[in-house]
Design a protein around this nucleic acid. Sequence first.
DNA 1: TCGAAGTCCGAATGATTGTTCGGTAAAGTG
DNA 2: CACTTTACCGAACAATCATTCGGACTTCGA
Lengths: 193, 193
Amino acid sequence: MSVRPTRPALRERYDRRQERVISQAAKVFAKRGYDQTTMQELAASMDLATGALYHYFSGKEELLTAICDQLMEPLLEQATEVLRAGQDPEAQLRALVRLWVCHVVEHRDHMLVFQQERHLLESGERWRKVRASRKAFERLAAEALERARPRGDGHLALLALLGMVNHTAQWYRPRGELTPEAIADGYVDLVLG
Amino acid sequence: MSVRPTRPALRERYDRRQERVISQAAKVFAKRGYDQTTMQELAASMDLATGALYHYFSGKEELLTAICDQLMEPLLEQATEVLRAGQDPEAQLRALVRLWVCHVVEHRDHMLVFQQERHLLESGERWRKVRASRKAFERLAAEALERARPRGDGHLALLALLGMVNHTAQWYRPRGELTPEAIADGYVDLVLG
DNA sequence: TCGAAGTCCGAATGATTGTTCGGTAAAGTG
DNA sequence: CACTTTACCGAACAATCATTCGGACTTCGA
């Protein structure tokens, strides 16, 4: 039941496989829905028996939080990095939104699952970390936007930007005409007028 | 099992109660999630026994499609109305977005349920009508936007607008500072530059 | 007022499904 | 090579929950 190996040689493999399970789960959950996906389906989709999943996770819900963590943590980290670079405000905002859109696009399945199960976030100790990450990221975005757009009410602009970027997960297709960078630039253009 | 009364005097009451059940279901589903809500909980939340729900719907999934219909149909109808009025392009767009935001805000629960269960839309005969309504509305919005914003690539602007407006359901609170009209105008300002 | 139609009850049911667990094979370690 | 840890299997279990259904009560229409 979800016990990380002691032996160093196995630990790496364990971690790698665990991450693969998370990604695959995100893919299946995104397509079929979290509740409508049975553990058996999920296991079958990665050529495992149902019991095997419990080597990597204590249960279905932990799998869900893992998906959210795998989504939010690298984003928050990279965003902090970008804003530390200290370019001029508009360049910072553009860099942040580019990073963000790229992340959404690369983690489309994670995003869709996250949005589907948004109602779980509203309460429950288990979700504290995810809630905190989301809030922290939104604060970074708010500050970057405020600096790049000093006049006017930034509040609605921020909400609009959040809407655009998050919504991107719903329509973006890899073979589409727009690159993630072009999308991000388009969004920033809208928001900066 | 979901048989509409023959007698005129009862038909009205039946329809009224059915609508109330739909709205209440939207509320509970939005808060707890569709799959995580049991029929017993749902019935209890409206002081009914579980069996009573099957007077109005043949099953849980029909309740879900009813929520989507109750959301999409009046919107599509009113939108068509607004665009038929034939003002100048920008006024048309503003009117449409106002209508749209108001609708989202008044049917917040419906919207949240709709978004949660978006993955069901992707396939299944049962969802054809809902899919068609959504597509029809998006087409209206696209045309209105195109007319009001003749130069530039309207494609990304449309997607951005869809994102903003739909996302509104996630943060809007009745006691907030922004009125639906102010929100709508803010969105249009962003999109028209 | 009478019979039919409608409304709702709520316990029982049948199917589904998350999770457990005893066992087997494989791989690391000394 | 022993032997311990790790990886995985997959049938069985226990719990949950959508749906059914026979009946009690109410309202309508004539």
